[in-house]
C-alpha cells in the first residue's frame, strides 16, 4: 500500500525482522535516518472460505516503520467456490523523525478482487484471487513542496488458510503489477526524491512480489489476526518502496450469525 512516510532504513535480516514484528505485535522499529517512500504492502487477505454464503469482514491497524493507518477488509462468497473481496487502506506518517511540520505523507488504496476457493478439508481452504485497485500517495516535504502520485495495481493472489477451533493460520503470495499512472511533482522537493520518483516513473509498471503470513487467535465468529506482509522487490529501496508492514485486525465471520439464526429457525420449525 502506498504510503508516504518516513521510512527509517534498518537493514536487518528478514528473519530477525519477522520475529521482531511478530513478537512486538505492532511496535515499530525506530531508527534515525529517515526518508519518504512511495509504496508499502497492504495486508493480504487470507480468507478461510468453505461454502457459498461465507462472509468475513475485518477492521484493523496497519503499521510500518514510521507510518500507521486503518485497514478494512471484506470477502463474500456469493456462489460455491467463487468469492469477491474488497480491501481499503488509509495510512499516514507517524513518529518523530520529521524535520518540520511540512514534512509528512499519506496514502490510500481501494481494490476489488475476484477469485475462487477450494475447501480441501474442513480445516484447510485454498484460494486464488485476481484483482484490481487504485490509490494515491501524497508526500509533502520541506519548503511546502509536494509529490502526488496516483497508481493502479493488478494482482494475482494464491493463498491458503488453515483454521482450527482456537487458532487460524494463513499464507499468501501476491504478485502485483504496480502501475503509476499520474504524478504531480514539485521539483522543489529536491534530491534524492526527484531521482527516486523519476526512477519510479521510468520503470513503471513494476512487478512487485509480496508475501504474507497471518496468525489468528480466537474462535468463531471473532478472531484477532496478526499479519506480516513483506515486499520482495529487489530494488525496493531505490524506489522508495517499504519493505514490510504489520497488521493487526479484528476479524469477524458475519455469516456465522445468519447461519445461527437460520439453523435456529430451522430447528424451531422442526
Amino acid at each position: 500500500m502506498p504510503v508516504s512516510l518516513h521510512f527509517c532504513v534498518v537493514k536487518n535480516e528478514i528473519m530477525i525482522r519477522t520475529v521482531y514484528y511478530l513478537l512486538c505485535a505492532g511496535v515499530l522499529l525506530f531508527s534515525t535516518a529517515c526518508t519518504h517512500y512511495y509504496y508499502a504492502p497492504n495486508t493480504l487477505q487470507t480468507p478461510f472460505l468453505q461454502k457459498r454464503g461465507d462472509m468475513r469482514v475485518s477492521a484493523g491497524y496497519i503499521a510500518g516503520d514510521e507510518f500507521q493507518g486503518l485497514e478494512l477488509h471484506a470477502v463474500l462468497s456469493p456462489v460455491r467456490y467463487g468469492a469477491v473481496m474488497v480491501n481499503y487502506l488509509d495510512v499516514r506518517n507517524s513518529g518523530n523523525n520529521f524535520s518540520s511540520n511540512n514534512d509528512w505523507g499519506k496514502g490510500q488504496l481501494i481494490e476489488i478482487g475476484l477469485g475462487g476457493y477450494y475447501p480441501a478439508t474442513d480445516k484447510l481452504s485454498l484460494s486464488l484471487f485476481a484483482g484490481w485497485g487504485g490509490g494515491s500517495v501524497l508526500n509533502a516535504y520541506d519548503q511546502d513542496a509536494r509529490a502526488d502520485l496516483r497508481f493502479q495495481r493488478r494482482f494475482l493472489q494464491p493463498g491458503l488458510a488453515v483454521q482450527g477451533r482456537w487458532v487460524r493460520f494463513g499464507a499468501a503470495l501476491r504478485l502485483n503489477q504496480l502501475q503509476y499512472v499520474r504524478g504531480d511533482i514539485n521539483y522543489a522537493i529536491g534530491e534524492p526524491h526527484i531521482t527516486t520518483i523519476t526512477r519510479i516513473e521510468q520503470q513503471s509498471p513494476h512487478f512487485v512480489p509480496e508475501s504474507a503470513f497471518t496468525l489468528g487467535v480466537g474462535t468463531r465468529p471473532f478472531w484477532v489476526n496478526m499479519t506480516l506482509n513483506t515486499n520482495h522487490k529487489a530494488d525496493r529501496t531505490d524506489l522508495g518502496f517499504a519493505e514490510a508492514t504489520f497488521g493487526i485486525a479484528l476479524f469477524c465471520e458475519l455469516d456465522y450469525f445468519w447461519r445461527e439464526q437460520t439453523s435456529g429457525a430451522a430447528s424451531k420449525s422442526e
Binding site: 499520474r182 504531480d184 514539485n186 522543489a188 520518483i197 516513473e201
Partner: peptide, 17 residues
C-alpha cells in the same frame, strides 16, 4: 472486464517547479 479496464497505460508525470 476488471482486468481489461486496468490495462497498462503510460505514466503521466507532471513535474513542475
Amino acid at each position: 472486464l476488471l482486468l481489461a479496464a486496468a490495462c497498462n497505460r503510460d505514466a503521466d508525470f507532471n513535474y513542475y517547479y
